[in-house]
Design a protein around this nucleic acid. Structure first.
Lengths: 203, 203
DNA sequence: CGGTGAAATCATCACGTGATGAATTACCAG
DNA sequence: CTGGTAATTCATCACGTGATGATTTCACCG
């Protein structure tokens, strides 16, 4: 009367595990997303998750690898008049995160806020791939690029926290273009506005 | 050969537990801050923590109650010329969080990013005590106050995330006044700048 | 028809968590 | 000196976690 063993049909369980992993990581973060919950979300035994992807870290990396590919969308933010880069940046961020494909990005972000090694992961990813590779190009004075790009990151991260994590109303339910129009110019000013003369005081 | 029972000396263990709780909550967040770790930080048995404060939630609330009292510092942000409120607000935030007393606030913030009920806690606290009670007064047009104040919250939250949670350099190590000068004006613009005409598109 | 390897499940293990109740000790009033 | 009460510790419990190894079943190929 045992019914172990292989189940008929489904040969796409591997990718359905990945889907469930992205969804679960997105709404719970890395720590609180249990392998059991991910397995249940895919209608599958927890051990099977380990069978396909080894450890939990590897599953997380596998879930993040495919959908996060900024190399394709960075040019889209750079193209166009330079004095509207801030607006384009905010619009790009919102369009990515509001789309279903943004679940993976949201997963990584939420995880980075509560877990140490995912935070390191995101930090290095954001710094090397986004800030230094894209935002820094928008800054005229190279010496100011590091601080200016982290200031931009400040506004973008705050938007994501308020809208997607804390869900502060009415901002969380606001139309994307309203936010683009309201926040974009401020991002632009982080890129352009003259820096205070206190600039040399670094660390 | 048992050495249970009461220890000599120390009658201030209760407050030392609270101290350890604030420190631990601040650097780990609500979930990852184990009662065992808090007890160890105070050099005390875990059961004693339950003895003084009942459940973990009650301990968290007790640890947050005392040091978070915005009623005293809100007037400080409101006083002064209205067109520099943004600068004063950023300066106030940084001064609070950079001080050792800011550990409790940091605890609440980090916890709100990873835990559901602490998020609700902070959300309602921030909305009712900070935004509606202070920031909203700075907005000229009352109808715009809700959105404008959450926009301000966006920038403030992003500053805290980047500086204290993700620790993005060079922003994390930057001098406070540099950030005040760079970010304050943008906060001010969230209060003053004309809103886009797309405004009616709410939820 | 058979058999080989992958897919899937079951039954655990070791561990850390929050929490509880009993036992032990120190302090203080009488 | 003697109770009694509060402070502190010990020994657990029940639970959820990530992970492993054995075992069973299916699919496919010859």
């Amino acid at each position: 009367m045992k019914r172990s063993g292989r189940r008929p049909g489904n040969q796409d369980t591997r990718s359905s595990i990945l889907d469930s992993a992205r969804r679960t990581f997105a709404e719970k973060g890395y720590d609180k997303a249990s392998i059991r919950a991910i397995a249940a979300g895919a209608g599958v035994d927890p051990a099977l998750v380990h069978h396909y992807f080894g450890t939990k870290e590897q599953l997380f990396l596998a879930a993040m690898n495919a959908p996060i590919n900024p190399a394709e969308m960075i040019p889209r933010a750079l193209a166009g008049p330079r004095d509207q880069a801030g607006i384009r940046l905010v619009r790009l961020v919102l369009s990515v995160w509001d789309s279903p494909a943004g679940a993976a990005a949201l997963a990584m972000f939420r995880s980075a806020l509560s877990n140490e090694w995912t935070a390191r992961l995101l930090r290095e990813f954001v710094i090397t791939q986004i800030l230094r590779r894209a935002v820094a190009d928008l800054v005229l004075e190279p010496a100011e690029a590091p601080l200016r790009s982290t200031l931009v990151a400040t506004q973008i991260a705050g938007l994501m926290v308020a809208r997607y994590v804390l869900k502060l109303e009415p901002l969380a339910g606001a139309d994307a273009e309203v936010l683009v129009a309201a926040i974009g110019p401020n991002v632009q000013r982080f890129l352009d506005d003259p820096m205070p003369e206190v600039f040399k005081a670094g660390s």
